[in-house]
Computed example of a mutant assay.
Amino acid sequence: MHAHKMALANLWGEMLPQFNNVAGSLFDYGSSRSFESLFERVKNNPSLAFFAAETRLKESEIRLAKTQQQADIDWSVGIRRNADIDESALVAGFSVPLFAEKRAESAVKSALAARNEITFRQQDFLLRIHTQLYQAYTAREQAITSATTLRQSIIPQLADALTQTKTAYQRGLYSYLDLMGRAQGVSFPGESG
């Protein structure tokens, strides 16, 4: 009994049971929400926020790679002194990297591929969660329908059949063996239905 209480406390997020008795109804299933509203709640999963943060990071890497496609023109100005001939000269220079766009193209493609990979992983995650949630949702709905059918239709009919069998036994129409067999759902040779 203590193990069951411990398991129930653990299910409720507690290490030790903080209760002595538990009361409830097996036939109180709670309110049903639509599948769509449940899936909307799943979209607030922290794992999806992680995908969004990772996507923002990859977008910034794409922007950085695109800035490297543009050639940075470097220039310099200075004075050069030649001590041998006792002269000074003004020197100016500039440099332009050639083919900067071509060199940075692979970095841009790599950054785009990394961002697309995150998008595909996010879509895959959503599809898997959607499938799992739908399976759980339909299993719950089916279980509620089965339990309701049992409670409202099948169990009352079985209880009525058992009452009729007991009454027939009490009137002497069945032997004790017949009563026990009927109560357990066993049919005997020569019986119909």
Rank of each mutant, 00 (worst) to 15 (best):
E191H: 02
E191T: 05
V22H: 04
Y29M: 07
F35E: 10
V96G: 06
D124C: 00
L173F: 09
N21A: 13
S146K: 06
A100D: 04
R41Y: 15
Q69I: 02
Q157S: 13
A65F: 02
T131M: 06
V22G: 04
Y169Q: 02
T119V: 10
K102Y: 07
L177M: 06
F94T: 01
W12E: 09
K102G: 05
S47N: 13
T149H: 14
K109L: 10
L127Y: 05
G93F: 02
L90D: 03
A114M: 07
S153L: 08
S146D: 15
S60K: 14
A104M: 01
S25H: 04
T165D: 03
R128L: 08
S175A: 05
T55I: 14
S95N: 06
I118L: 09
A104T: 01
Q135T: 09
Q142A: 15
A49W: 10
R33Q: 14
L177N: 09
I85V: 10
S88H: 07
K66I: 04
E101C: 00
H2Q: 09
T67P: 01
R41N: 15
E14R: 10
A92S: 11
A147G: 08
Y137G: 02
H130I: 00
L126D: 08
S88V: 10
Y174I: 12
Q132G: 05
V108T: 11
M1I: 08
R140N: 12
K58L: 15
A161K: 08
E117T: 03
A161I: 07
N20C: 01
R128G: 02
Y29H: 13
M180P: 00
A183T: 11
E191S: 08
F125D: 00
Q184V: 00
K43S: 12
A107N: 12
L112I: 13
K58G: 05
L98A: 00
S192T: 14
S187T: 13
R151S: 14
Y176E: 12
Q132L: 11
Y29P: 02
K5R: 07
E14L: 12
L90T: 07
K166M: 09
T131Q: 14
F35V: 07
L57D: 07
T165S: 09
I79K: 14
Q170H: 11
A161D: 06
H4C: 02
D178S: 06
V42R: 15
K58P: 00
Y29S: 08
A139P: 00
S192C: 03
A83C: 00
Y137E: 02
S175W: 03
I155R: 15
R56K: 15
F19G: 04
E59C: 02
V22F: 07
T55W: 13
Q68S: 10
A49D: 15
M1F: 11
E14A: 10
F51Q: 08
E54I: 03
R182E: 06
T119A: 15
I155T: 09
A89F: 09
L150F: 11
V96E: 09
R103I: 01
P189Q: 13
Y174H: 11
A3E: 11
D124P: 00
K58I: 05
R103F: 04
F27M: 10
A3P: 04
I79R: 14
L112W: 01
Y134A: 07
Q152C: 00
I73K: 06
S76H: 08
